[in-house]
Write a protein that binds this DNA or RNA. Sequence first.
DNA 1: ATCAGTGCAAAACATTTGCAGCATG
DNA 2: CATGCTGCAAATGTTTTGCACTGAT
Lengths: 147, 147
Amino acid sequence: MGQAVSDWAASAGEALREGGYRRGGARRAVVELLADQHCCLTAQEIHDRLRATRRGVGIASVYRVLEQLVQLELVQRVEIGDGMTRYEPVHPDGVHHHHHVVCDDCGKVEAFSDDALERAIDSTAGRLGYEARHEVVLHGACADCRS
Amino acid sequence: MGQAVSDWAASAGEALREGGYRRGGARRAVVELLADQHCCLTAQEIHDRLRATRRGVGIASVYRVLEQLVQLELVQRVEIGDGMTRYEPVHPDGVHHHHHVVCDDCGKVEAFSDDALERAIDSTAGRLGYEARHEVVLHGACADCRS
DNA sequence: ATCAGTGCAAAACATTTGCAGCATG
DNA sequence: CATGCTGCAAATGTTTTGCACTGAT
């Protein structure tokens, strides 16, 4: 995982530089935090973690940086239906590509991946004439909540 | 389509009656509007259409009725990543079950369905121990926006 | 030095809730 | 005629924006 993490931080840094962005403190802090994540975080969670571990970053800057990263396709939005948008790094070449299962009782979010599902989605997207990124969200009750 | 539409309105009416709900004007208006839809609408769109075509229904009532219908599993929420929740009727036995493709340029939302994709999702959900409802959203650029 | 980047506070939205009056069963 | 339903307005929670100041190049 260390490899992919630093890969992402490196690509992100390069893309930002090429985009003409400066390496301000807030942007760097958000990128570094995201590089350590493998699953999605809300803007508020990012804000809280940054306040806890290093110089705090204003929530407005968190949103601004996330928006820029989404535009550069370095980060993708994930919506699981609880009114808050989550964000997670997108690794090049689909590495670490995954989807999410949400427990509608306790709100827990887990990641999963499945090759057969990916193939089915690719073939469907092709049929529709979209070469597209995609998002699958499963909703149900997790093992803990069913017991 | 006429068949499924009236089926849904009928099931909805019955479920609401059994749930002990009264047939107030706002609830009836929202159910009737939804019965004519095959794809998802935002609360605001529902509010606007009701104001245009019949006695207006307060936006608060629109949200209240939608919440009740979601609880009764007559309606499901759809999140396509633009900050607004959409709602669409759920037909019994998975009839008319579908997913959504969103054009990230113009915002157009289209429905699609694909049996192979459904089978892949069912099998994946089973493997994860979730018997779950699911939602697939494809994001890309539509034919119009690419030309 | 310049101009992008940042934090704060205020604004803008989507959604929810309190409440007093209305209407269904 | 009692209680659920409704609309309005206010509250809430998330995300965006205005603005003056800071800091990277």
